[in-house]
Design a protein around this nucleic acid. Structure first.
Lengths: 109, 109
DNA sequence: AATTATTATCGCAATATTACGATATAATTA
DNA sequence: TAATTATATCGTAATATTGCGATAATAATT
């Protein structure tokens, strides 16, 4: 046990959960906020900004990149990261749809 | 190591991450979708619906309840759960604000 | 009162995540 | 070319999450 039983759920449910998991860490939220503010930055900037070790920062960047929400391009010796606008919009639309207005009277039984 | 270094991040960053974590599992997404559809249900309904063990289902319900996004009221021998509309709206507004429109040209360096 | 039904919690095993030092790799600089 | 800079990856330790059987607690039923 310990592993999530993804086969019990729909593709959509697994996708929403995976997207939520991608942003379910304050460091990754901080990275995304920093990228939105600065438009682009290199890994080293984030190491200074976050206060986490270089290895840890790189690992969080990798997770965000795997999720597709950021992209990196090699810029000489460093790597420049920025938001992937297409995927960013997908996230916005998906969370928007999930939390859409419903007639919630909170009538519990 | 292993524990998240919450002290490195702002209260807001930790809050957004915590909210994302609350819905970062397909079973919890499925529970919320079921509650939106049915308006209210008891734990046993979800055990049948999800296909997870009773103990596991109860645990996921507890996490959603701790996050505040659902509420439960004792109804005889069973417990009736429903969405907490106030917190639901907070989630919607917060994710909405986080993923708000920004001028993302995706211009990476 | 004894049985049954419903849910929560405990205890444990398996797996995942977080964090970091050490090291590898590749580009830049001296 | 050697040293430096920037990033990624490996290996490992600490902690968290997931899942479930067993059991406790409470209400309903017989």
């Amino acid at each position: 046990m310990g592993a999530t039983k993804t086969d019990l759920f729909t593709k959509q449910q697994n996708e929403i959960a995976a997207m939520a998991k991608a942003i379910a860490h304050p460091a990754r939220i901080a990275i995304l906020q920093y990228l939105v503010k600065k438009n682009a930055c290199v890994c080293g900037d984030l190491v200074d900004e976050l206060g986490l070790a270089q290895a840890t920062t790189s690992q969080h960047l990798k997770e965000l990149k795997t999720a597709g929400i950021i992209q990196g391009s090699i810029e000489g010796a460093s790597v420049c990261y920025c938001i992937n606008p297409k995927v960013w919009k997908q996230y916005r639309d998906l969370f928007n749809a999930f939390f859409k207005e419903v007639d919630l009277q909170g009538s519990c039984c």
